[in-house]
Design a protein around this nucleic acid. Structure first.
Lengths: 234, 234
DNA sequence: CGCCCAATTATGCAACTGTATAAATGCGGA
DNA sequence: TCCGCATTTATACAGTTGCATAATTGGGCG
């Protein structure tokens, strides 16, 4: 009943920034941009709204940072997957394809984030650039994996092949994330392996056993596991 | 200078509903859900904010109506394309595929709308059902077209084939709508025809000439061409 | 032509939004 | 121990939002 001032702990700058960014991301992922108000973000990060302004000049700055962090994490995760496997070209491609269609990449949160940021990105040149770089980077990696395959010289179609394979992956990712219950377990990664293989003339399904059982990291393993936050702001 | 009351014209109920829905859709498509405020919607529809409440109990009702109208229009457009072509199975499939990767389907507006509604849909059971019905309906049509192809009995893979083809289309649609300048003219529909054909073992590119030149309707040909609306609400 | 009612506008309001600023407090260094 | 200050909370404010309600006016019907 006594309205005493809320107690707090001082945290290092980097930790607070990350917490605020993570809070903003999860809110956008769950409820869209409208859900990510400064107060909601602060609450989820376990602080009060004013603190946001102490680490970010404006809310748009936080939004930008959240999107850039997202893109950063995705590209990092993509290359990380390839580091866990040897140099058999077919296997590498299979692993790369399958990883994009399993958690934590295939989850509604990801689509929610992507959709929630779409319009902000379109209205900010820097974000647009980051978005394109992310997309093209992913496609280039894919194209490199395709080029490494040992198949009859079809290098003229390399670009088209990469675009098409990328599209299958994106489409399956979209559908599987939004309507997960419409598909059986492992159905989508299997379909991806089969159709990408069919388009390229290789048998990726032969590597399904490995590609589907590879352990995948969660996006932020170093984040604070316990949320020091009670819902009531009063 | 004289603050005389704004003059207005009475319109039939259906026309006003459609105008409000179209206004809401275009705003969501351009700027996301946050841009579709009641005042902005009313302004774009050429009326004042209060009128919305006269036709829709709440703003959420308008949102719902806008999304349902969108889904309706899309499924209608999809079937309409098939009515314009004969009964050659390959040609029908090619036309169907290509139509999804050309304007007006492939345009940022569509992706913007899809993304802008994603979270609202997820939080409303009725919309979720409509969304799934739309997706599955599209996929079923696609599956029917695939089944009609004259190819060696691979009916066991029919479901997988439909899912995969749908995914290529969705993925190309996504990328082409968001980053249009990354692709040449007609590049994406051609890639779609080639890769869908490769997955199914038929040559769809042979029908490219027809599929790429078919005239396509704009979504609402009966809408009021001239916008009776001046920007200043005062 | 003039009545009448529904369609439309105008106004008001409480809740919420982002931001600015002042006040308090935790904590490392003396 | 306690001083100093950056970190954090608290408060304030103007603008916006969705919604409710009252005041007008268009236009069909007699």
């Amino acid at each position: 009943m006594t309205d005493e001032r809320r107690s707090f702990r001082r945290e290092p700058e980097e930790k607070r920034r990350e917490a605020l960014i993570a809070a903003a991301q999860s809110l956008v992922a769950e409820g869209g941009p409208q859900a990510a108000t400064v107060r909601a973000i602060a609450a989820r990060a376990g602080v009060t709204a004013g603190l946001i302004r102490h680490y970010f000049q404006t809310k748009d700055d936080l939004t930008r940072a959240a999107y850039l962090a997202l893109m950063d994490g995705m590209t990092h995760a993509n290359t990380a997957v390839l580091d866990t496997v040897g140099d058999d070209a077919e296997l590498r491609l299979a692993v790369f394809v399958a990883a994009s269609l399993r958690p934590p990449v295939m989850a509604f949160d990801r689509v929610g984030l992507w959709a929630g940021f779409l319009h902000s990105v379109q209205q900010d040149a820097a974000l647009l650039e980051a978005h394109e770089a992310g997309y093209l980077g992913y496609r280039d990696t894919l194209q490199g994996l395709i080029a490494a395959l040992d198949r009859p010289a079809m290098s003229a179609q390399l670009r088209s092949d990469a675009i098409a394979c990328n599209a299958v992956i994106d489409g399956l990712w979209l559908e599987g994330s939004v309507i997960p219950h419409a598909f059986g377990p492992d159905e989508l990664p299997r379909i991806a392996l089969r159709s990408v293989g069919a388009m390229l003339g290789v048998d990726l399904l032969a590597h399904a056993a490995i590609a589907l059982n590879l352990p995948l990291d969660d996006p932020k393993p170093d984040a604070d596991p316990a949320a020091p936050f009670d819902e009531t702001m009063e």
